[in-house]
Design a protein around this nucleic acid. Structure first.
Length: 274
DNA sequence: ACGCTCTCCTGTATGC
DNA sequence: TGCATACAGGAGAGCG
């Protein structure tokens, strides 16, 4: 499942093949993604891709006339392929380029989206209210601390709130809380500044590390070059309920929070009030 | 503003 | 072997 590192790996993978190229054709085989792919996506034809940026888990394919907003949802995957490559199941959209390549979006569960906007992408409804990027200085222990003072929800759900910080999905939330020694069910407003400093630091570390490892391949994630991510080998708690904690040897415990699998070490991540 | 539930979807795993 | 069911979850929508 693509989280921020997987989206960033995809961005880095496709950019060299796309930036500076002109869109020759957009083929939409199945427009039924999370929101229907709008017919205006055809406005891309004839435009040159000037850059590919990432905001949260959205990829922004920029041109001088508008921006395509792409999200991979739960199961989306991007590949760069030669023109004429036969499409398979769940290959919903191709963006064909002037260099003979095409960008192909495959998304079995269709939780992803592909939209087109002429306004600055940051002002788009989907992006306008997002919190800071975790790998920038705008995100810090201080920002977590300040935003959490009136929040009673569990810290895990707090850091997965896109208004607080973007790009922290279930896997990396579990991992960062473990590394910071914070119990996932601790109320957000019951954690002090020092512990939030540790948590922000661990979030940055785990996300940056995952990007360098090519993301986390759980089932079928691959980069745009088809290679899997290797961060799965470095997971400390996610998917390891019942196994011994790598730090203390105690058994990792699993609970469900908001429908999400939550794994932690009761000994290394004690509940402690600020 | 906050916190909770619901919803979208299909591949995979499990139980009968 | 086949069917029914549960589960995985990003994140917007809608409710109280």
């Amino acid at each position: 499942m693509p989280e921020l590192p997987e989206v960033e790996v995809s961005r880095q993978g496709i950019s060299p093949f796309m930036v500076g190229e002109t869109v020759m054709r957009v083929v939409v085989r199945n427009a039924s993604l999370r929101w229907p792919v709008p017919s205006e996506i055809q406005d891309m034809v004839g435009l040159t891709i000037t850059g590919i940026r990432r905001r949260a888990k959205y990829l922004l394919l920029e041109t001088d006339w508008g921006t395509a907003i792409l999200h991979l949802g739960m199961s989306g995957n991007l590949k760069v392929l030669p023109h004429g490559t036969v499409a398979g199941k769940h290959d919903h959209v191709d963006i064909e380029l002037s260099n003979g390549k095409l960008l192909r979006l495959n998304d079995p569960r269709r939780f992803g989206c592909l939209l087109w906007t002429r306004e600055p992408a940051e002002q788009h409804k989907l992006l306008a209210k997002l919190g800071p990027e975790p790998l920038t200085d705008a995100f810090s222990g201080d920002s977590l601390y300040e935003r959490s003072r009136k929040r009673k929800i569990a810290v895990k759900q707090f850091i997965m709130d896109n208004h607080v910080v973007v790009g922290v999905g279930n896997i990396y939330a579990n991992e960062a809380l473990f590394s910071a020694g914070i119990h996932p069910q601790q109320p957000a407003n019951d954690i002090d500044n020092a512990r939030y400093a540790a948590l922000a630091s661990e979030i940055k570390t785990v996300l940056a590390r995952a990007i360098t490892q090519g993301g986390t391949t759980l089932k079928d994630f691959t980069g745009s070059d088809g290679k899997p991510g290797y961060f799965v080998q470095e997971l400390q708690v996610y998917g390891k309920a019942g196994l011994p904690c790598s730090a203390c040897g105690g058994l990792l415990q699993e609970v469900r929070m908001g429908g999400r699998s939550t794994v932690f070490c009761p000994l290394c991540q004690p509940k402690r009030s600020a």
